[in-house]
Design a protein around this nucleic acid. Structure first.
Lengths: 219, 219, 219, 219
DNA sequence: TATGAATGAGTTTTCATTCAT
DNA sequence: CATGAATGAAAACTCATTCAT
């Protein structure tokens, strides 16, 4: 059976009869969910963009929730690939820049639909009632964790908090950008964040000792 | 008829006949929407919380959208009152602190449900398709505008961007806090933002001339 | 109480407090019903055009059906007045012309809304299930009866059938006019009917004896 | 999917899976709509008659309007078949007789429910507000167009107006018949119309040149 | 596996009618 | 008599999920 094996099987070789229908389903779901939101996306919608009959979705996913979870996982997986690519860069500073560049270059669609990860995380939070849904956590934790590593690389003892500040700064900017439908807003704030990262990096390079006393957000 | 709100009567003393059922409706809606999200809140839910039959909602609101809009407006109206209270404080610095205090003291519910304004704005953005819905804009614009005034009070030429950075920083932090169900995260970030505000204020007081060259996020 | 006394009280002197609210109600109902149809007209609609609170309708009419019936009766009553006016004319021929003129000069609204009497009769037929509703009968019977009298005045033994043919011709033309939204169609057919009436009248005048053998529709 | 009718399959043999549920739906709708009127027919009514759950209607028709439209189209389609059958007759005169026979032999149900086409057209006119609905036009236009062809076949220059007169005469008679619940009324008027058609046909045969000067309704 | 077709519970919305004052 | 407010029963429509083949 196909239920429950999830992420391992996903990128393995596809058998002839099913040229990765599951993948089409997941990426279709991702797209429609991004544009319309989870709650306003019906399985019929997904089926249509994926070119798959509705009933067939249930061969690949037991419930709508499962499909949504898979879409979330795909986002996480993409993030993983991104991080791997960024690993090739020379410094944490460049890598953090790379992340911000990537996030803000989703093609101006942020003003139209918001940040894919942030909006999805927000919806998943509501969807699963009070207890945190594992997927929504993953979405953002993945980013925060990675950013934390970069700040650790800059030898910051408060790396976790800096990471949170960075991601929060970006996600908040994306929310405002979406709400006000103003792409420039995102550009401005991303630039601010880049400069902020630069200063942290500069401080790390110049005076690696004097750091820890300075306030969190302001280095 | 009751459609088209009687904004004057709304907060006045309640006459015996209708112990402000409309208000009960709106605040019931606000609460349930905050907890479950707009899409997952049925009018039956709201009716139950407000203790009235579903059909009766339609005496006060022509559509669900109207009720949601009223809930959003109530948020904006509350913000207005908050700002008025903060106006009593002596300095922009204190006022900005006041805002952050208020926002983060919604009773620890941020970890459970997120920021009421941010999550609502996010949902409204999706609800009304691609074009921005007036309510979701208002929600955040109200805050940004007010914050901008405070930064103008600190004689910052980049007041708008600072305001955006502040609100974005807070909203992003709230999103992460909610997603990770970690109240401390919010506390940390709010503290960061407070310090950041303090530094901007200090700079304004000490060397009002040297400001403009410094980078945006780091004063 | 006001229920049930209906047509007598209607045109009597109005007491100061109620400047014929009932009348305003009835004529409001007539108008809206004509434009939107009985089923698509809500009591709220009627109340609005009449400038009367919804609840108050029930002082004058026990049910929606009663109000509709009153609207129908008002049409009949108007017809009565029309017939009285036409009585002043010299010949049946002129009177029948007068009826057709009146019916087709409702201001081109026939193309927009159909014949007020015909459409209402049609709706009432459906509204009251299988057994004929007294009001819908009255609506058309009143016209047919009167027309019959005119043909009797032309000394036609088949007066009833001629009357039916005339009214049917008109109502059918109004239906087509409405459906095709083509005012000229009505004008054409009314002209046809006028000529047909003329010929019947001519025949009556010229050869009062030769009549009875000719076919019904074709004189 | 089933939306967007499979007009070909509709009247073909039914495969085991779906014993033409769509057809059952449409003809059920036709029947109930005929008897109760569009506005007073709920989808639940139709579902019951068709023996299917309400929700399932929406698999075949996106909205109630669509179902109603399908019912109207079915009427038109039936008319098409009728006309094809009538084409076999030798003369326009016989064909017009055939139409009238068919229309008035709907089983005496005209007195109970009116003319299926006329009543439906009337309701559709109201349903779609002021602008003509395509279906209601089609209903009557189809008949008028065909009748026009027959009068053209009788070499009448005023064929269109004669066609309108014929259909209007019939529809008006059906309306009166229904309103007065008097089947004889219809019989009488249909006979009149037949005779009228005969005279036109006779005139065409005898003196094909002398026609155009005569009045419209009276040949 | 695949798929068109069910199914049924839920959601928004409308409205005639009633009620309390 | 007047009226704003209430109420509950429908109605149209949606959709996740299941089923038969």
């Amino acid at each position: 059976m196909a239920h429950g094996q999830a992420s391992i099987a996903r990128n393995t070789v596809v058998d002839a009869k099913t040229p990765n229908k599951r993948d089409r389903l997941v990426s279709g779901a991702r797209r429609v969910i991004y544009e319309r939101g989870v709650e306003r996306t019906s399985l019929a919608d997904v089926a249509e963009v994926a070119g798959i009959p509705v009933g067939n979705i249930y061969y690949y996913f037991k419930t709508k929730d499962d499909l949504v979870a898979a879409a979330a996982e795909a986002h996480v997986s993409d993030l993983g690939e991104l991080f791997q690519r960024l690993e090739a860069l020379d410094s944490p500073q460049e890598r953090l820049h790379g992340l911000l560049d990537e996030l803000s270059h989703v093609g101006g669609s942020v003003a139209e639909y918001g940040c894919p990860l942030g909006t999805l995380a927000g919806e998943l939070d509501k969807r699963n009632g009070t207890m945190a849904s594992p997927q929504s956590q993953q979405l953002l934790v993945t980013m925060v964790d990675w950013a934390e590593q970069q700040f650790v690389g800059l030898e910051r003892g408060d790396a976790r908090q800096l990471a949170v500040a960075l991601i929060a700064g970006y996600e908040g900017a994306a929310l405002l950008t979406h709400s006000l439908r103003d792409p420039e807003l995102l550009a401005d704030q991303v630039q601010r964040l880049q400069q902020w990262v630069d200063e942290i990096a500069d401080t790390a390079n110049q005076a690696p000792a004097a750091r820890s006393r300075r306030a969190l957000h302001d280095q």
